[in-house]
Nucleic acid binder design. Structure first.
Lengths: 353, 353
DNA sequence: CTTTGGCACTCGAACAGACCGAGTGCCAGT
DNA sequence: ACTGGCACTCGGTCTGTTCGAGTGCCAAAG
């Protein structure tokens, strides 16, 4: 269903039901169709790519490819266009992705540097990705579960209201207001205890330690402590709270003109944080690019689109996922290269901060 | 250029260049066109609205209205459609907006209650507004300048890195990482001093007091204190940092089918935070609804659209603005009522939290 | 067995002309 | 000042025709 390109070998193995020339024809069809958006015929093919054969031969191959479901014709007596299956084969048989040029690397760097906080970084990232790929970009906030607790703060707002703040190593900040009686003294004690237990721990471990802390609290802290810890556990456990930033919407115009039919469902899907999270959720491995093409997609609204995604984070640890959504008819090689490059860069960038 | 509907009197004054019946005809044209999206002719008009006159009479009035620039015909021998100027007159001559029904009030309440923090509130608000108006909704984050400082926190990340956090009464959180040597002791002293100076103050005043604090710092705190205060001043002064949430994009499909021509520029404008901020910036007064129609709009990309916006906050104090963007051909009365209702509700809601 | 050139066939896109009817402007009559 | 009547305009739709890109198939050639 999904492909990790880094893991596939070169295109020069055999023994499949598609021989080398047919594959070449498929490749030619895909690239031509992607750039022209129009069904491509046998004659145009031999002219633009120098396959060493005649149109008639290509026609035979095309018939075979159609038989096997890799291409199709919109109506009789028109050229062929690739099917989802065709794109899939095309993507699977890509060689390794070529890295971005030095200039592009520099552009990415320039775009990201100067970011001031996590929101800012992700906001810039999504714009960067959208601009580079000319598609709609999606970036997920780093999940809580992969982060460690950096600091816990409890602030008195009034004698009966407390603000509880949780800060993670990835720069995320969560806050809740809490109704509970307390004194300044209790709060500072509580602060010390909470931080001692949780700081530096992975969120899951921190949650466990905080939970077990409840029973050990000095009686003076029992009330405010229990309430605070309950809130903290709520924050730590609520991993669906992970948010998603979307950008590059104007690129949706490339979908063609059947607006109501084509674009509306995509827009709707893009507004559903839950859908996007699930979509990205299955593409977490760092340093490999996942592609899901058309019907391979679990959501009906997105079955006319393809997803190109990659996890980002450190080499050891993937924090979250980012990617793009575009028409199935897209330039996969360069898009995949761009997504991978941006993911790597953001990962490094966040690891430093 | 903009109108505050609450301030205009009823429609029954005279002495203008449009008499009462012509106005009635204009009203009929606008409502019919809004609901049908098609040019409306004299015959259809007298049938659907019971004006007590014949089509021919209406035609005369229409000719006059066209002469004065309130309506136009797309081509000879077609019906009439309102111009921007026509919509403007229509809106200016609206009676007072009718409040939402009890059921709608309850729906709004249900939608908003249960929000957990500021992000959440605004996120829900934008969805609510989009759903209620069936347009693209825009909500601005409360500006810093209208908020008071709730708490300042300085957290040690390592011996030479400090996280500075600013929390406002409206629930906004700003954070920066700072490179400076320090000890735990210095930080807790600093925390006390900073909060003593700033908490409860309006951001402008807090900034002033923090600035004057620099010279009074104990020498031990001089280095870390100066750095922190500089950062805080930066955060407090940076009012352009106000962000904007956009939602209801799928409603853009109502713009009609000329996708590339119509919708692309709008999408582009909606991605530009700066544009949106400036757009909303001029509509800050609480409890009055500002309408900007088509060409009245300062941004070329939005000159096929109308903006309906209102400030929100308390009666005394407007924090920020929210509104919707839609085609000039929209149902102004109910849209304006909805925007006003949501703005009021959110204002109250935030004032409580 | 694979490749090629030739040929008849299909079908959508583009164009042109005819028709229809909604809507207008004007004018004479009440 | 309003109304009914009338000639006129012009965009939308429908129909028929043409054009050409592209196909599938077949028989001949390598």
């Amino acid at each position: 269903m999904t492909t990790e390109v880094e893991a596939t070998e070169g295109p020069d193995r055999e023994g499949e039901d598609v021989d080398e020339r047919k594959l070449q024809v498929l490749r030619a069809i895909v690239t031509d169709y992607v750039s022209s958006q129009e069904p491509v015929g046998s004659k145009a093919l031999v002219e633009r790519h120098n396959l060493g054969v005649s149109p008639a031969t290509v026609r035979n191959d095309m018939a075979a490819l159609e038989e096997e479901g890799y291409i199709t014709q919109p109506h009789t007596s028109a050229g062929r266009i690739p099917t989802d299956k065709g794109y899939r084969l095309f993507v699977d048989r890509l060689g390794s992705l070529k890295p971005l040029s030095a200039a592009e690397q520099r552009a990415i760097h320039a775009f990201l540097s100067g970011a001031v906080d996590l929101d800012d970084i992700l906001f810039r990232t999504v714009r960067l990705l959208a601009q580079v790929t000319q598609q709609v970009a999606i970036v997920q906030y780093p999940t809580l579960s992969s982060a460690t607790v950096r600091h816990i703060e409890v602030v008195s707002l009034s004698s009966h209201r407390v603000l509880v703040i949780l800060i993670t190593s990835t720069g995320r900040i969560e806050q809740r207001v809490l109704e509970t009686e307390h004194t300044a003294d209790e709060l500072s004690q509580l602060r010390a205890v909470l931080n001692a237990a949780a700081v530096g721990q992975l969120s899951s471990l921190a949650a466990a330690r905080l939970a077990s802390l409840v029973s050990e609290l000095p009686t003076a802290l029992a009330a405010v402590g229990q309430a605070s810890i309950a809130t903290l556990l709520d924050m730590l456990g609520d991993d669906t709270a992970s948010r998603v930033v979307v950008g590059g919407m104007p690129n949706l115009t490339r979908f063609g003109d059947e607006f109501e039919t084509n674009v509306r469902p995509v827009l709707e899907a893009l507004e559903e944080q839950v859908v996007l999270l699930k979509l990205l959720g299955e593409a977490t491995s760092t340093d490999s690019v996942t592609v899901r093409i058309g019907r391979e997609n679990p959501y009906e609204e997105l079955q006319a689109t393809s997803l190109v995604a990659s996890g980002y984070g450190t080499a050891l640890d993937s924090w979250a996922t980012l990617g793009i959504v575009g028409p199935t008819r897209m330039d996969y090689p360069s898009t995949m290269a761009s997504v991978r490059a941006v993911a790597r860069y953001v990962g490094r960038f966040l690891a430093e901060g």
